[in-house]
């Protein structure tokens, strides 16, 4: 562990301040709590909001997993994992079941989370109403008055343009029947996992200096219309070409030489563990 730094990089005062913001966020599910976002040795926009949450929470017995675009191996995930373990010495893992803190961008792990786990989501744009209202003062008022017509208008306009709701990611949700929040750029596929999840879900936006939370077992509803109910991405009967799983979030790959299409699990660590398990089963028989 690098002794040039305090444990988990920040001084204790900074951590306490972030934890206070987290407590407030947990007390007001879905409400964006402002916090004094710190300068970090990684560029803003690369997960500094999530990283600050993780650093303020991580204890010596924690086990950390970091995901970026569904993968533990991307440069960004590796850098964040190295930074946290380097300043704390905590154990790291790729197995979502083993982890106590999971920091993620773009995905919620495929394997169900459990009580006691913390999922930290990195958020670039925390304000779900920003597209229709550029003024921060006005969006605050809209939240206070629970006026979410603008969020519905955006979905309505998507239906006009594309014939259906086409939010690729970050589809807005209503939390605990009160605040509407941006769930971070997770695919619609992951929205249902926010609802009633046993884990504590924390969302951090470094550049925009906001923290918000979905406490365990909170009701989370994706915004939709009576005659156009919310739907997750549908992969039909497609299955992962490596592990054979279907009903999971898949990426489409095109072989550049043949032009033929194949599917791959987006959650690479789940894919790998499925392949290990079937290999072991084959070896045993």
């Amino acid at each position: 562990m690098n002794s040039l730094y305090n444990y988990a990089f920040f001084d204790e005062g900074s951590k306490r301040e972030i934890r206070r913001a987290i407590l407030k966020a947990v007390a007001l599910p879905g409400y964006q709590v402002p916090f004094a976002s710190r300068e970090m040795p990684i560029a803003r926009g690369w997960g500094t909001g999530g990283l600050q949450l993780t650093l303020s929470l991580v204890g010596r017995s924690d086990v950390l997993k970091v995901i970026d675009q569904g993968s533990d191996d991307s440069v960004n995930a590796v850098n964040i994992r190295k930074f946290v373990s380097g300043t704390t010495g905590v154990a790291v893992t790729e197995d979502a079941r083993e982890a106590t803190i999971i920091q993620s961008r773009h995905r919620i792990p495929e394997s169900p989370l459990r009580e006691g786990q913390v999922l930290v989501l990195q958020v670039p744009l925390p304000e779900p109403l920003r597209l229709i209202e550029p003024s921060e003062y006005k969006t605050k008022r809209l939240h206070a008055e629970r006026d979410y017509s603008g969020a519905y208008l955006v979905l309505f306009e998507e239906i006009q343009r594309y014939g259906r709701v086409a939010t690729g990611a970050d589809h807005p949700v209503e939390v605990h029947g009160r605040y509407v929040m941006a769930p971070s750029p997770i695919p619609r596929f992951d929205n249902p996992k926010l609802d009633g999840n046993p884990a504590l879900i924390l969302l951090g936006a470094g550049r925009e200096k906001k923290i918000y939370a979905v406490p365990p077992y909170t009701k989370v509803r994706s915004l939709d219309f009576e005659d156009q109910p919310f739907r997750v991405e549908d992969f039909g009967s497609a299955a992962c070409g490596l592990c054979g799983a279907s009903g999971v979030y898949l990426d489409e790959l095109v072989d550049p030489s043949t032009g033929s299409k194949t599917w791959r699990c987006n959650d690479t660590s789940e894919c790998a563990s499925r392949r290990r398990a079937s290999q072991e089963a084959a070896d045993a028989s």
Partner: peptide, 27 residues
């Protein structure tokens, strides 16, 4: 008006604001 939203959405906005959540009826 919201200059970048469709004319249909511009007219529907007040209906959404008044609480309608039925796309077909608003369209």
């Amino acid at each position: 008006l919201r200059m970048k939203f469709s004319a249909v959405a511009n007219v529907a906005e007040k209906m959404i604001c008044a609480g309608s959540r039925n796309v077909g009826a608003m369209e």
